[in-house]
Design a protein around this nucleic acid. Structure first.
Length: 888
RNA sequence: GGGCGUUUAGCUCAGCUGGGAGAGCGCUACCCUUACAAGGUAGAUGUCGGCGGUUCGAUCCCGUCAACGCCCACCA
C-alpha cells in the first residue's frame, strides 16, 4: 500500500507524551492568557505532602482537575491551575528524625533545633521535588510559576498576618485545656487527627468507701490506673440509689484520698453502675464535670506517656503497665469487685497510631464558633456548593458543633508561633515581625513561643497565600483580584473537614468571600475487589507503571470514565487495557483517513453540497458536542467519556468510515475531496472534544490536521453546538438504514451464510420516504451487507417463496435462498423474534385498552404508545405470515 | 448512640423531573473483509434486594424489613 505505512499500526505513547509536555511548557501554554472575554477560571491543587509519593488517588484527583482546566481553557477562560506542596509538619519531621537516627544514631535533641531544621530543609530540597516530577507524567497543565510551598516566604507571611490578627481580636488564645496528647510524637494533636477504633477492653468494678458511713460505692471504669487523679465521684442527681450520699466524701482506694461525691446530669443511671469516678485531668467528660463543680485537676502523665509522681504506686510505668499494677493493688486491697469484658472506642493518633492520652495542657486555640457559622451559611445559601450535593451533610456535621481548634504543636518543623514574651515584665504579644525587644519595658529579654502551628493552619490559608496575600505587591503580581475567589476545588471526601472547612472558615474571615464556588468530591480509588490499596496488602497499582504500560491517555480516560457522582472506583487493569484499545482505535481511525487528507482542500465544504451520510455524521457530532459540554460542566466525566466513546466507536468508525470506503476508493474526485473535507473537519472536531481527557494523542494527531495558521491543540477553541449542523431527517433515515443492514447480517448469521457469499434480498415497506431513501442507498446496502442490489416494494406485493425473513417495525427483509439452509435453526430464531414482538405488543395493547390510561396519561405518551403498538403489530403479522410458509 | 450511603446482566457500574431495562469488560458463534486481531459481524443473559403503599402506570416517590459499606461521637 501507501502512505498509511508511515504511521505505525498501533499507537505508541512512549516518547510522544514527554515530547508534548515539554512543548506545552516551553510554549507557556499552561499560563493564564489575559483578557479572555469569559473571565477567569481558577483551580487550586490540593498540595501533596513533601513526603508523598504519587498514587492512584493523585492520578484521579489530577486527571479530573486537568480535564476541567483544559476544558475551560479551550472554552476561552483565563485559566489558572495553581500547584503547591505542603510541609506536612508531623509526617516530615518524623521521617527526617528516623533517617538521622538510622544513619547517625542521633536524636533531634542531639542536633538542636537550628541544626535539625537545616537538615529537614536539606531533605526537602533533595526529595520534595520527586512527586512534582511525577505529576508532570500525568499531563497536568498547571502553571508551575505559581508553585507555592507552605513554608515559603509568602505563606509564612500569611500565617503570621492571620495569627496576629486573630490574636489581637481575641480569637486566638492560650489556655489550659484538655487536649489529645500523642505520647509518641510528644505533641498535642487536634480532635480531627484522632481516630476512634474499637478495642477489646475490660470493665473494672471498684469499691470506693464512703467516709463516716458503711456505704460502699461501686464504680465502673475502663481505666482504673487513672484513679490516682480522681477528684470526685459523680452520680446522677435523680438517682434514688445514691441521693443520700451526695455531698459526702468518698475514699479513693490505694491512695486513700478523700474526694466529694457530686451530682451531675452527665452521669447515665443505666450505664455501668451509675456511679462515675471523675478524673478531670485525663478524660474529656470528666474535665467538663470538673469545670462545673470546680474540681481540682491532677496531672498524672508525663509527656512520654509514663505516669508521674502524682501516681506514686505506678510511677514510671506507661498506661498499660500502670493498669496492670493498679489492678493488682486493688485486688490486694480487696476493692476490685469484678472484671467484665467490654468493647470500647479508643482514640488513636492518626499520625503515629499510638493511643491518645487526654491531658490538660497549655496550648493555643482558635475559636472557630463564628467562622464555622459563616461557612455553614455560605453553603446553605449556595454561595458554595458540593458536587455531588450529598457531601454537604458531612461538611455540616463537622461544622455545626465546633470546638476550639487546638493549633499548637510541640514540634520543630512548621510555622513557629509568632508570639513573644518578655522575661522581665511578662508582657506577651503577637507580632508579624521578629521581635528583639519588649514593646512595653524595652527589655531585650524576649523569647518566642517554642511551638509550631498545626499544618492545616497554613494550608487553610492556601487559597489566599498562593495568590500573594497579604503582600500588596505580590497580590498584584499574581493577580489576586482576578483569580480569587477560585472556581472549583477538587478533592477527596476525607479532607472535607481538615481542609475544605478550614479554607472556608479562614478565607471567609479574611475576605468575606468563600474561597471557591464549587467543591467536586471524587471517589476513592480501590483495587478491583473494592479493597483499599495498601503497601502491606500488596494490591497497589502504581500510576507510573500503568502509564508506562498503557500510556497516560488510557489511564486518564479510565479514571475519567469512572468518575461521576460515585464514591468508589474499583480499578481493574483490564479496564485500563480496554480503554487503551479505544485510544488505539482512534489512532487507527486516523490512520485510515490520513492518506486522504491530501485530497482535502482548505476551503472546507458548503452545507448545501453535503451528502446525506455527511449530514448524518455532522449532526451526530453536533449532538455529542452538546452533551459532552453539558456533562463536563456538571462534573459528569463518566457521561462525557461515554458520549465520546460511543460516537467515535459506534458512529464514526463502525458506520461513517465503512460507508466512506467506496467513495474514497472511487475515481470521483469531487466526491473524494468533499468526503476528505468532512473527514478532516470531523477529526479535528473530535480531537478538540477529547483533548481535555486524552491530551497527548489528540495533540499528536492534531499536528497532521492543523492548518499552518493554527497553533497547538491545547489552545484551540472548544467546539460548540451549531444549529445549522442539525439534520434530523438524515439521522432518522440513517437509524432505519442501520437497522436494516443489521437485520440482513443477522439473517446471514442465522443460516450460516459466509460473509464472502453474496446474497439477494427483497425489502418490503409501506413507508414511501424510507423506500426512496433505501433506493438511493442501495449501493451502500450492497457494500455493507454483501448483497445483490435488491428490490424495494410495498407490502401489498406477494412475498418471495423459499425465503428467510426478518421484520422491523417498518420494513420486512426477505432473503430468498436456494439450496440447503439450516431451516430448523432459522425457524427457531424466527419463533423467538415472534415471541418477543408479541410480548411487546401485548404490553402496549393492554395499556391502550385501559380507559384510565387514556384518561390520565399525557397526550404525547398516548401517541407514542399508539405508534409503538402499530409497529409491533406490523412486526407480529409479518413474522406470522412467514412462519406459516415454513410450517406448510 | 447519631448520621450517611449502597443493593440493577457473570464482574464493575450508569439510569436526569415516574411512561417500552443500558454501557464497558467478560461470555458464545462466525470471520485474518485493503484503519485497527489492542480487530470485525452477529448473539445470549436481568422476579432492577424482600414485602407493602401511592398511581392509569414504579428501577425511579412513600413506608417497612434485610444485607453490606462508610462517617461522626467523651476510653464509665
Amino acid at each position: 500500500m501507501n502512505e498509511t505505512n508511515e504511521l505505525p499500526k498501533t499507537y505508541d505513547p512512549s516518547g510522544i507524551e514527554d515530547k508534548w509536555y515539554k512543548t506545552w511548557e516551553e510554549s507557556k501554554s499552561f499560563k493564564p492568557v489575559a483578557n479572555k472575554d469569559k473571565g477567569t477560571y481558577t483551580i487550586l491543587m490540593p498540595p501533596p505532602n513533601v513526603t508523598g509519593r504519587l498514587h492512584m488517588g493523585h492520578a484521579l484527583d489530577h486527571t479530573v482537575q486537568d480535564v476541567i482546566i483544559r476544558f475551560k481553557r479551550m472554552q476561552g477562560f483565563e485559566t489558572l491551575w495553581v500547584p503547591g506542596q505542603d510541609h506536612a509538619g508531623i509526617a516530615t519531621q518524623a521521617k527526617v528524625e528516623e533517617k538521622i537516627f538510622k544513619e547517625e544514631g542521633k536524636t533531634k535533641h542531639d542536633l538542636g533545633r537550628e541544626e535539625f531544621l537545616k537538615r529537614v530543609w536539606d531533605w526537602k530540597e533533595e526529595y520534595g521535588g520527586h512527586i512534582l516530577e511525577q505529576f508532570k507524567k500525568l499531563g497536568n497543565s498547571c502553571d508551575w510559576d505559581y508553585f507555592t510551598f507552605t513554608m515559603d516566604e509568602g505563606p509564612s507571611k500569611a500565617v503570621k498576618k492571620f495569627f496576629v490578627d486573630m490574636y489581637n481580636e481575641g480569637l486566638i488564645y492560650q489556655d489550659n485545656y484538655i487536649i489529645n496528647w500523642d505520647p509518641k510524637l510528644q505533641s498535642a494533636i487536634s480532635d480531627a487527627e484522632v481516630d476512634h477504633k474499637e478495642v477489646a477492653g475490660k470493665f473494672y468494678h471498684i469499691h470506693y468507701k464512703v467516709k463516716d458511713s458503711n456505704a460502699v460505692l461501686e464504680v465502673a471504669t475502663t481505666r482504673p490506673e487513672t484513679l490516682f487523679g480522681d477528684t470526685a465521684v459523680a452520680v446522677n442527681p435523680n438517682d434514688d440509689r445514691f441521693e443520700h450520699l451526695i455531698g459526702k466524701k468518698a475514699i479513693i482506694p490505694i491512695c486513700n484520698r478523700e474526694v466529694t461525691i457530686v451530682a451531675d446530669e452527665h452521669v447515665d443511671m443505666e450505664k455501668g453502675t451509675g456511679c462515675l469516678k471523675v478524673t478531670p485531668g485525663h478524660d474529656f467528660n470528666d474535665y467538663e464535670i470538673g469545670k462545673r463543680h470546680k474540681l481540682e485537676i491532677i496531672n498524672l502523665i508525663n509527656s512520654d506517656g509514663t505516669y508521674n509522681d502524682n501516681a506514686k504506686p505506678v510511677e514510671g510505668l506507661n498506661s498499660k503497665a500502670a493498669r496492670k499494677k493498679t489492678v493488682e493493688l486493688l485486688e490486694e486491697a480487696g476493692q476490685l469487685v469484678k472484671v467484665e469484658d467490654h468493647t470500647q472506642q479508643v482514640g488513636h493518633s492518626q499520625r503515629s497510631g499510638e493511643i491518645v492520652e487526654p491531658m490538660v495542657s497549655k496550648q493555643w486555640f482558635l475559636n472557630t464558633q463564628k467562622m464555622a457559622e459563616i461557612s455553614v451559611k455560605e453553603v446553605e445559601n449556595e454561595k458554595m456548593s458540593f458536587f455531588p450535593k450529598g457531601w454537604e451533610n458531612t461538611y455540616y456535621s463537622y461544622q455545626k458543633n465546633p470546638r476550639p481548634w487546638c493549633i499548637s504543636r510541640q514540634l520543630w518543623w512548621g510555622h513557629q508561633i509568632p508570639v513573644y514574651e518578655c522575661s522581665s515584665c511578662s508582657h506577651q504579644w503577637a507580632s508579624e515581625q521578629d521581635a528583639d525587644s519588649c514593646p512595653k519595658c524595652e527589655s531585650k529579654e524576649v523569647k518566642q513561643d517554642q511551638d509550631v502551628l498545626d499544618t492545616w493552619f497554613s494550608s487553610g490559608l492556601f487559597p489566599l497565600s498562593t495568590l500573594g496575600w497579604p503582600d500588596e505587591q505580590a497580590m498584584q503580581e499574581k493577580g489576586f483580584d482576578k483569580f480569587y475567589p477560585t472556581d472549583t476545588l477538587v478533592t477527596a471526601f476525607d479532607i472535607i473537614f481538615f481542609w475544605v472547612a478550614r479554607m472556608m472558615m479562614m478565607s471567609n474571615k479574611v475576605t468575606n468571600k468563600s474561597p471557591f464556588e464549587h467543591v467536586y468530591i471524587h471517589a476513592i480509588v480501590r483495587d478491583k475487589d473494592g479493597v483499599k490499596m495498601s503497601k502491606s496488602l500488596g494490591n497497589v497499582i502504581d500510576p507510573l507503571d500503568i502509564i508506562q504500560q498503557y500510556g497516560c491517555d488510557a489511564l486518564r480516560f479510565t479514571l475519567a470514565v469512572s468518575s461521576g457522582y460515585n464514591r468508589n472506583i474499583n480499578l481493574d487493569t483490564e479496564k485500563i487495557e480496554g480503554y487503551r484499545n479505544f485510544i488505539n482505535k482512534i489512532w487507527n481511525a486516523f490512520r485510515f483517513i490520513s492518506p486522504n487528507l491530501e485530497n482535502a482542500n482548505d476551503k472546507g465544504f458548503e452545507i448545501a453540497d453535503l451528502h446525506h451520510h455527511e449530514k448524518w455524521i455532522l449532526s451526530e457530532l453536533n449532538d455529542v458536542t452538546k452533551k459532552v459540554t453539558h456533562s463536563l460542566e456538571e462534573y459528569r466525566f463518566d457521561d462525557a467519556c461515554n458520549q465520546i466513546y460511543a460516537f467515535v466507536y459506534d458512529k464514526f468508525c463502525s458506520w461513517f468510515i465503512e460507508l466512506s470506503k467506496g467513495i474514497l476508493s472511487s475515481e470521483n474526485e469531487n466526491l473524494k475531496t468533499q468526503r476528505a473535507n468532512v473527514f478532516k473537519y470531523c477529526f479535528k472536531h473530535i480531537m478538540k472534544l477529547i483533548h481535555p481527557i486524552t491530551p497527548f494523542i489528540s495533540e499528536e494527531i492534531w499536528t497532521y490536521l492543523k492548518t499552518e495558521d493554527e497553533s497547538l491543540l491545547i489552545s484551540q477553541e472548544y467546539p460548540m453546538y451549531k444549529e445549522e449542523f442539525c439534520f434530523n431527517d438524515d439521522v432518522y433515515n440513517m437509524e432505519k438504514f442501520i437497522e436494516i443492514i443489521t437485520s440482513v447480517r443477522n439473517l446471514r448469521n442465522s443460516v450460516n451464510v459466509k460473509p464472502k457469499e453474496e446474497i439477494d434480498i427483497r425489502l418490503f415497506t409501506d413507508d414511501e420516504v424510507l423506500a426512496r431513501y433505501l433506493f438511493k442507498s442501495r449501493g451502500y446496502l450492497k457494500e455493507l451487507a454483501n448483497v445483490k442490489a435488491g428490490k424495494i416494494k410495498d407490502k401489498s406485493v406477494e412475498r418471495p417463496e423459499k425465503s428467510i425473513m426478518r421484520a422491523t417495525a417498518h420494513t420486512e427483509i426477505f432473503v430468498p435462498l436456494e439450496g440447503i439452509i439450516d431451516i430448523e435453526n432459522y425457524v427457531q430464531k424466527l419463533g423467538n423474534d415472534l415471541k418477543k414482538a408479541e410480548k411487546e405488543f401485548e404490553k402496549v395493547e393492554k395499556k391502550l385498552k385501559n380507559p384510565k390510561f387514556i384518561e390520565n396519561a399525557p397526550d404525547n405518551v398516548i401517541a407514542e404508545v399508539k405508534e409503538k403498538a402499530s409497529g409491533f403489530e406490523e412486526q407480529v403479522k409479518s413474522i406470522q405470515n412467514s412462519l406459516t410458509m415454513f410450517e406448510s
